[in-house]
Structure formats: structure tokens, C-alpha cells
Design a protein around this nucleic acid. Sequence first.
DNA 1: GTAAAAACTTAGCATGGGCTAACTTCAGAG
DNA 2: CTCTGAAGTTAGCCCATGCTAAGTTTTTAC
Lengths: 137, 137
Amino acid sequence: MTKQIHQRTRQDHSREMAEDYVEAIADAIAQYGVCRAVDLVSHFDVTHATVNNTVARLKRDGLAKSEPYGPIELTPAGRRLANKCRDRHQTVQAFLLKLGVSETIAALDAEGMEHHVSKETLTAMGHVLQHGWPKEK
Amino acid sequence: MTKQIHQRTRQDHSREMAEDYVEAIADAIAQYGVCRAVDLVSHFDVTHATVNNTVARLKRDGLAKSEPYGPIELTPAGRRLANKCRDRHQTVQAFLLKLGVSETIAALDAEGMEHHVSKETLTAMGHVLQHGWPKEK
DNA sequence: GTAAAAACTTAGCATGGGCTAACTTCAGAG
DNA sequence: CTCTGAAGTTAGCCCATGCTAAGTTTTTAC
């Protein structure tokens, strides 16, 4: 029982980075039209070299594509993942706000929590946002 | 703004493992009287070698101590961290249950989410558990 | 009291995700 | 057009977290 949980934990770790990156790439494209490596450098506050490494993994995994010295784009799979992450992120953040958490902290916590929120929990949060809090037992 | 968030994200990653381990060590001690490496092997479903590595880091960081071939113990700092994590874990899990999430999923999500829940969010969750849902504004 | 099994250690390897330093390419100002 | 600074690449390093394989110590069962 616990075994499966921690197996998932480890797999999640490798997916979190990918999720954060496709989200950031999608954001940059939405905001500037294209995503340049330098956008990710400043977004994640890492070096160019690190962005290069990570984007190479995204490309290997079929989530992104780019030509040397060209902008970074998402594959259809990358776009799908980015959309899923954006929705999930927004739901978690809105839920925390509704819970009464401050804007700053809600943004911070949502960033970390979003990767660990299952579909079921997300649905429950979405339901609260649409229909209000559950009735007291 | 986003920079700080992702700096935190990276630091968190290195703390999650430590938190999971001290929690597991404290659990084993509570349950069996002592914690043996083999308990962590089965709890995390990793090899003995991996447990050895990780516990060595915990020792280096002043959270655990052990003699060769002896049981694994927590330092006062380790115990403090374990207690904090246990409380946080329980609050998050209980909160998810109150939200209407199933037992299985609540356990799974709590495991991942707990490391990313700030004090403020935890307080908000605790408040709901004690006093019920916020009033619909 | 010893032999087999279980627990533990150590060495060596891989991958992910970070860095610096040195280099190349590109784009814009003059 | 050229030259300079920004953007991107490459090589080489480090540490965390996993593994296998091989050896050592401890425990247990006879």
C-alpha cells in the first residue's frame, strides 16, 4: 500500500519539472508570441545551460521542439499537458483563495501542490468553486 | 516574483525526501520500538543500498544517527521535524476527507501535497476541521 | 555451536538537474 | 558593413537519488 504511494512520489518528481516547463513555455508563447530560452532562464532563474539541458529532455520526451538558435515550441502532446496544468493550477489557486489564504501564499502553495493533486481532488475543489462548500456532515 | 517561487520549489525537493524519511523512521520507532534499515526498505520499496545512502545524508544533516549494523535513531532535530510532518500530514489528509475525497485518494494526495503546504494554508485547513467551512461570502 | 538466512555495507554505475567557463551565432547600432 | 553585446551552445564538473553485485555481520534455527 505505502509502496505504491512512494513509487508514485518518485515518478512525480521527474514529471514536475516537465510540467512546470511546458506551462512556462505556453505562457511565454501566449504572452510574447514565441518562447525563447532566455524567457525560461528568467522565469526559473537558472542558467542558459540548465534550460538547454531541460529543454533537450522535453524534446527527447516528445513535449517540445526547436531548431538551434530558434524559438522553443510545444508539440501537440506538450500543448495538451500545458493546458491540463494550467487548468489544474488555476483551480488549486482559486480554491486556496476561497479557503481564505492570502494571494501571495495561495500562488506559492498552488505552485507546489498542483503536481500532487489527483483528478478526484481536483474535481472536489472545482465543485466547491462552482457550488460552494459542502454541507456540514 | 516567479523567481522566488521556483527557487523555493528546488529547495523543497531536497527537503521532501528528508521529511518522508524522518516521518517513516518515527513511525517505525512508534510501531516496533526501533527502526531498522529493512523497515525503510519495505516502506519506500527501495534497495538497502539506497536506504544506506539516504540515511547517510540524514546523518550528515543532523537529523538521524546510527551505529554500523545498529538501529536508526532520530536526533532531537529529526524528532522535531518528524512531529511537524506528522501533524501537517494528518491535517492535510483529514482536510481532504472532509472535502469529500475518498480515503485512498486522500492518503495518496496528502503524501504528495503535505510538503508544499505553507503554515498559512495549514492553519486555514485546521480552522475548517475545527470550526467547519467558511461562511459563503 | 555452527550453518544458513537475513540484514547491512561498500563499490561502482546511471540519470536528473544544477553549475561555470569558453565558445559560437545572431541582431542591432554606428 | 562591421563590431559589439545578447542569446544560445557545448564541455566538464557536482550532488541527489536510484540501481546491481559482491562482500560482511548478525540472527536464527537446528
